[in-house]
Amino acid sequence: MKGQSIERDRLVDFYHMMLRIRVFEERVAELVESKDVKTACHFCIGQEAPPTGVCAALEIEDQIFGAHRSHGHYLAKGGDMRTLMAEIFCRRTGCSSGRGGSMHVCAPEVGVVGTVPIVAATIPIAVGAGMAYRLRGESNVSVAFFGDGATEEGHFHESLNLAGINQLPVLFVCENNLYSSHMGIDERRLKDNIPQSGDAHGIASMSVDGNDVEAVYQAALEAVARARSGGGPTLIEYRTFRWRGHVGPAWDYDVGVKRKDELQEWVQKDPIAATRRQLLELGVAEATLDELRHLVDDEVRGAELYARQSPRPEASEVLDHVFYQPQGVTQCAS
């Protein structure tokens, strides 16, 4: 039963990662409520499976790009939780040195090149990363994570076509949570048919249950294999739902618009609770899972402590970082 134990261990890892994202964000949500955190936070609570499953299908050299709702992607790709928390506190030790806040996080050492809040902005940038790998003969893949709203920008369509015609190793990962801020998908498109954009541009596409972490992973594996072997890009739609409002910790409001009924349904489809049930069925001891929860609680507490004890940037540093200066390279005097 070796295969089964590999699967089970993988599911334990998924469970652990999803819990890390959930517990981290729930704590940040409290910190927003208590006004310890001021930076605008967009939580992915409820949609932890796509970051977890997709990043598990990647190698450390593979690179990802994200948008405004990216704490989960950062953690799942291996970014340090402490520096993420410090960035959310806008401290100098933050992953973006306090310049970015929640909406601009990166961990280039593990392939999180950057997440930015201009909707769809990083989709073509991910295409460019894929182009670079191809030009250098590398087998890496790049991933653009974005929401259903981003598919309404021209960036999305231009990028699918560009990646398609050049057969680039890119995963277009659309986390379709059925909302773009306050607007449901039916208010924004005639048909809920995002994967058909892949067909229209002649690239592979799939639609997958975004709350089933194993299914998320399997779809990503398939797309990654295709990309690495020169088979070109894939558009994957993961259907999911965010539990909190568009921005901030509120449960039932999206920028002033209520959507409570749907939420109840989706809370029943909690990806973490589902994975826990599966693990128990597979014979994993309850105590093992509880132990993971304690580990995660400690890690999140540690991250918060780290952030709180970190210095803030100094006013005298306001002019820093506008131009990149590689370490050890002296700039020409102008």
């Binding site: 803030r312 100094e314 006013a315 506008v322």
Partner: peptide
Amino acid sequence: PDVPAPSSHVLEQA
């Protein structure tokens, strides 16, 4: 100054 807007409120004040 010739700098993008920072996030940190300390830097915002400056």
